[in-house]
């Protein structure tokens, strides 16, 4: 018996022991992966094919939830537009701003860690607390920003009460909380060898050339990383729009997760919410794949790859 197992097995007894030991150590993750990732993924796929309000057992509907969302629910396309607008502006713009700030901080700046600290702190402050301040700051009647504008006789800005302004306002809040990306960029910039800049300068490269041909290529893997992480976070933005605008005015900030939350936990449409979740999942995966694919053309991984 033992001999036959050994013949079939690709592993030596020592390797089997190592495998067993390794699995014992990673077993919390394996169990967690099965319970909190695989099972929910599969059951959410099943619920997305049903009507389920938690009170009565799920009723199987086939792909009706998806069909209704795509072809018979103008609200869904509005949510999709809002979300793509938010992601499409806040992510590239946020990454660009973070990269610019990091580059400024990477030159010899007096008090760099002070600047970095001030820019980083908003990203770690509880989102609820910052939502409260921004709601106050952006208020039309008694907000500080409009108070200053009014003092100088300038027209006031209806940040959160006008459908045209609401999305840009929320994007502003998101960019304000971009400090983590700045710190990541700064760490990457400090790894760019000085000698490359010196060599480029000797060759007559000006500031823009050095930025374009040294800085950007050498930090492009981190740009890719920040783009993808920013994308995943932005597609699932919830707290700030929920607290600041509750999806309004006129549904202009009804972003994907706000809509999903509403369907699941206010209307108890678990089936529809699951279908929404799966659509979002597929959107995020395809965006990530597209960016990864395109990265072959613009990301520089050193000489060996």
């Amino acid at each position: 018996m033992a001999a036959s197992t050994q013949k079939v097995s690709r592993y030596t007894p020592q390797e089997w022991r190592n495998l067993r030991l390794g699995l014992v150590f990673v077993s919390p993750w394996v169990l967690g992966f099965l319970i909190f990732t695989i099972y929910p993924l599969l059951s959410s796929l099943y619920y997305s094919l049903t009507r389920y309000d938690l009170l009565r057992p799920p009723v199987f509907l086939g792909v009706k939830n998806y069909a209704t969302l795509f072809f018979d629910d103008p609200h869904f396309w509005n949510v999709m537009y809002n979300t793509l607008y938010y992601v499409g502006v806040s992510v590239p713009f946020g990454v660009a701003v973070a990269f610019l700030i990091a580059n400024l901080l990477n030159s010899d700046v007096v008090g760099r860690s002070f600047f970095r600290g001030v820019i980083y702190i908003p990203s770690i402050v509880p989102a609820v607390a910052s939502a409260m301040v921004w709601q106050f700051l952006m208020n039309v009647q008694y907000g500080a920003i409009n108070g200053i504008l009014r003092h100088f006789g300038l027209p006031i800005i209806p940040f959160l009460s006008n459908p045209g302004w609401a999305k840009p306002s929320l994007i502003l809040v998101a960019i304000w909380a971009q400090g983590a990306a700045v710190v990541i960029f700064l760490a990457a910039l400090q790894d760019v060898p000085r000698s490359l800049y010196e060599a480029a300068t000797v060759d007559g490269a000006n500031l823009w050339h050095r930025f374009r041909n040294v800085t950007v290529p050498l930090t492009s893997p981190i740009i890719l990383f920040n783009l993808i992480m920013g994308l995943i976070v932005a597609f699932q933005e919830f707290t700030v729009p929920w607290l600041l605008t509750e999806g309004g005015p006129m549904n202009s900030t009804e972003f994907y997760l706000v809509h999903l939350y509403r369907n699941a936990f206010e209307y108890l449409r678990m089936g529809k919410a699951s279908a929404l979740a799966w659509i979002l999942f597929l959107i995020i995966v395809s965006f990530t794949i597209v960016i990864f694919r395109s990265s072959a053309r613009w990301v520089y991984y050193g000489g060996d790859k």
Binding site: F36, Y39, Q236, L257, F281
Partner: peptide, 12 residues
């Protein structure tokens, strides 16, 4: 995306 597991985990 954590949004995908949010609903089924709530049900569980």
């Amino acid at each position: 995306p954590w949004a995908v597991t949010m609903v089924p985990l709530f049900i569980t």
